[in-house]
């Protein structure tokens, strides 16, 4: 017998993501999912973001890695609540993992949760976590041709951080070409050149994020 199903394969993940979205909306907390290759500077970017925004917002971090607690410990050392998710081999985070991690946080007393996805430019793009925005980080040493090779992640990101911008003079990174291809893949996404390490350019990214956080907090107050 033939049985018609016609269902989205990731229906289960998407349904849990919807629940996450409701939980975040009720708590009035903004959730950003940071995606990048291993070594692009995700954790350093998070630390720079915390430094820029901790006086204005209450922040927590969810760290996704295949193994270890190294990143969560780095964040916790700055006095910021950090939950580590070990995916045990999986190359991306899924909504159920976020759900379990969030249970360890007091969402009501937070304004911003930063999720650090597993280092990977392909797999995290398919999985909705219930976050408000996916943002990707590309670092200068990775090369300006990455949008040609991994277009999906550039299409789905609401903003693109171009990290390690201070190394531009020593790499053959064609910034005009990079901006042109990202602009074609995703005309609405702003590009923030910055160095999470030196702090150069972090303010523009922090301002963009602040506006998004305030929009969610405003919405929660209205409701």
């Amino acid at each position: 017998m033939r049985i018609d199903i016609a269902k989205d394969v990731l229906e289960h993940n998407d349904a849990l993501a919807e629940e996450n979205r409701r939980v975040f909306a009720d708590a009035g907390v903004f959730v950003v999912d940071l995606m990048a290759s291993p070594g692009a500077g995700k954790t350093t970017t998070i630390l720079a973001t915390i430094a820029a925004l901790r006086d204005r917002y209450r922040i927590a971090v969810i760290e996704g890695d295949v193994a270890s607690r190294v990143d969560a410990e780095k964040i916790a050392a700055h006095g910021i609540p950090a939950v580590q998710i070990n995916t045990g081999g999986a190359c991306h985070l899924e909504s159920a993992m976020i759900r379990r991690a969030v249970e360890q946080l007091d969402l009501g007393s937070l304004d911003l949760v930063i999720v650090e996805n597993v280092g990977n430019l392909v797999c995290p793009t398919e999985f909705d976590l219930g976050e408000h925005a996916k943002v990707m980080i590309l670092s200068v040493p990775e090369g300006h041709d990455k949008p040609y090779k991994y277009p999906g992640i550039f299409e789905i990101s609401e903003a693109v951080i171009l990290n390690k911008y201070d190394t531009l003079p020593v790499f053959d990174f064609d910034e005009a070409e990079f901006r042109s291809v990202v602009g074609r893949l995703n005309p609405r996404a702003p590009i923030f050149p910055m160095s999470a390490k030196t702090g150069e350019g972090v303010a523009a990214w922090a301002d963009w994020l602040s506006a998004r956080i305030d929009a969610v907090k405003g919405g929660a107050h209205d409701a």
């Binding site: 017998m1 033939r2 049985i3 016609a6 394969v9 990731l10 398919e126």
Partner: peptide, 10 residues
């Protein structure tokens, strides 16, 4: 699309 359309079963 990431869709399961149908199955044949017996």
């Amino acid at each position: 699309e990431l869709r399961i359309d149908a199955i044949d079963a017996e």
